[in-house]
Amino acid sequence: MEDNQGTLWEVFIQPKAGRPYKHAGSLHAYDKSMAMEAARDLYTRRGEGSALWLVKAEDIVASQPEDMEAFFDPANDKAYRHPTFYTMPEGSKHI
């Protein structure tokens, strides 16, 4: 029988209420509640956060490096999506 100390999980921490969750690292666990406790015991020992998300690594859908150009380059020439693209009349305020 394989003895890999459980499967791999990815840990996300919310540093403060209202903030986005950030990837903190990984761990091994056999089931959901053990994964949650291991994450608490491993990644929040120094007050790093107040909420946790756990995801089984195998359940994550990740983009592939070979798709990088097709996925992300087309966004590079769409400057009109950014506010600095627009010229505002001299003296206009609160816009």
Binding site: H28, M34, D41, L42, R45
Partner: peptide, 11 residues
């Protein structure tokens, strides 16, 4: 029995 548990017990 495994690393994660070692850490938890120490906590």
């Amino acid at each position: 029995p495994f690393l994660e548990e070692d850490l938890a017990l120490t906590n």
